[in-house]
Simulated scan of single mutants.
Amino acid sequence: MSFWNVEPARSPSAKLLAGAALTDIVLILVFAAIGRDAHQRGDVVSGVLLTAWPFLAGAAAGWLATRAWRHPLSLRRAGLGVWLGSVVGGMLLRAITGQTVVLPFIIVALLSLGLLLLGYRLLLAGIRRRRSV
């Protein structure tokens, strides 16, 4: 095989892509639900959606910026961008819309969303590595 005759990398299946995107969405909703529960706020469904939407929009921006659909489970190629996009974008949108943005909340969001959005990717990478050995 010559240098110029390189086969293109296979793109992830639609099922894998949808699974990764859905997992990111569900984990951001879990983050919002836990936060609302910790602060004993009512309006469960609408409240969670109100809390989550800025982070979901930020995660979507992270997906676009990193082209996460190419490697949706990659920690470096997708995970970091989705995580930082959700936190930075989420906080910017919260500030623009008059929602609370204080340093302790930023730190909690950074750590919690990092654990969730990077954690499952790390876990899956470890499982894949163990299976390939």
Rank of each mutant, 00 (worst) to 15 (best):
A38Q: 14
T100L: 15
G62L: 02
V101N: 06
G42T: 12
G114A: 12
V87L: 15
L29T: 15
A18N: 04
P104F: 01
G58P: 03
T51V: 10
T51S: 04
V108G: 02
T23K: 10
T97S: 08
V48T: 03
A57K: 09
V82T: 11
A78D: 03
T51I: 09
V82P: 15
L75T: 14
L29G: 13
A68C: 06
L80I: 14
L84N: 10
L116K: 15
R36V: 03
L103G: 08
G79I: 05
G89T: 11
I28D: 07
R128A: 14
G19C: 02
L122R: 10
A68Q: 11
L117H: 14
G42S: 13
F55R: 00
P54Q: 01
P54E: 03
L75V: 15
A59S: 12
V101D: 01
P12R: 05
W83D: 01
F55A: 04
A65I: 08
S132K: 10
K15D: 07
R128I: 13
S13Y: 00
P72L: 01
I28Q: 09
D43C: 08
G81H: 07
R121P: 03
P12V: 07
L49W: 03
G58H: 08
G98D: 07
V87D: 11
P104D: 05
L22A: 14
I34L: 15
V87T: 15
L110F: 14
S2N: 13
M91N: 13
A68R: 07
A109H: 10
I106P: 09
L73I: 01
A65S: 06
L84Q: 03
A109I: 11
